[in-house]
Simulated assay, not measured.
Amino acid sequence: MTIQWKGVMPAVTTKFTSNDTLDLVNFEVNIKAQIEAGVNGIILGGTLGEASTLTDDEKIVLIKKTIEIVDGKIPVIINIAEQSTKKAIEAVQKAEKYGANGFMVLPPMRYKADTRETTTYFKKIANSTTLPIMIYNNPVDYGIEVTLDMFAELAKCKNIQAVKESTRDISNITRMRNRFGNRFAILCGVDTLALESIVMGADGWVAGLVCAFPNETVAIYKLATAGRTKEAINIYRWFLPLLELDINTKLVQNIKLAEVATGIGTEYVREPRLPLIGEEKDQVLKIINNSIKTRPTLPSY
Score class of each variant (00 low, 15 high):
Leu24His: 07
Leu24Phe: 08
Leu24Ser: 05
Val25Tyr: 14
Asn26Thr: 09
Phe27Thr: 09
Phe27Ala: 01
Glu28Ser: 11
Ile31Lys: 01
Ile31Glu: 03
Lys32Cys: 08
Lys32Val: 09
Ala33Gly: 02
Gln34His: 15
Gln34Val: 10
Gln34Asn: 14
Gln34Ile: 04
Gln34Thr: 08
Gln34Gly: 09
Ile35Leu: 15
Ile35His: 06
Ile35Phe: 05
Glu36Arg: 15
Ala37Thr: 07
Gly38Phe: 06
Gly38Pro: 07
Gly38Met: 09
Val39Ile: 14
Val39Ser: 09
Asn40Thr: 12
Asn40Ala: 13
Asn40Phe: 00
Gly41Phe: 04
Gly41Arg: 09
Gly41Val: 02
Gly41Ile: 04
Ile42Cys: 10
Ile42Trp: 03
Ile43His: 10
Ile43Val: 14
Leu44Trp: 02
Leu44Met: 07
Gly46Ile: 06
Thr47Gln: 14
Thr47Ile: 12
Thr47Asp: 11
Gly49Tyr: 03
Ala51Pro: 01
Ser52Leu: 15
Ser52Trp: 13
Leu54Gly: 04
Thr55Lys: 00
Thr55Pro: 02
Asp57Glu: 15
Asp57Trp: 08
Glu58His: 04
Ile60Asn: 11
Ile60Val: 14
Ile60His: 06
Val61Gln: 15
Val61Asn: 08
Val61Met: 08
Ile63Met: 11
Ile63Phe: 02
Lys64Leu: 00
Lys65Gly: 01
Lys65Gln: 11
Lys65Pro: 01
Thr66Asn: 00
Thr66Trp: 01
Thr66Ser: 00
Thr66Tyr: 01
Glu68Leu: 05
Glu68Ser: 06
Ile69Ala: 05
Ile69Gly: 04
Ile69Phe: 08
Val70Gln: 02
Gly72Tyr: 05
Gly72Ala: 07
Gly72His: 07
Lys73Val: 11
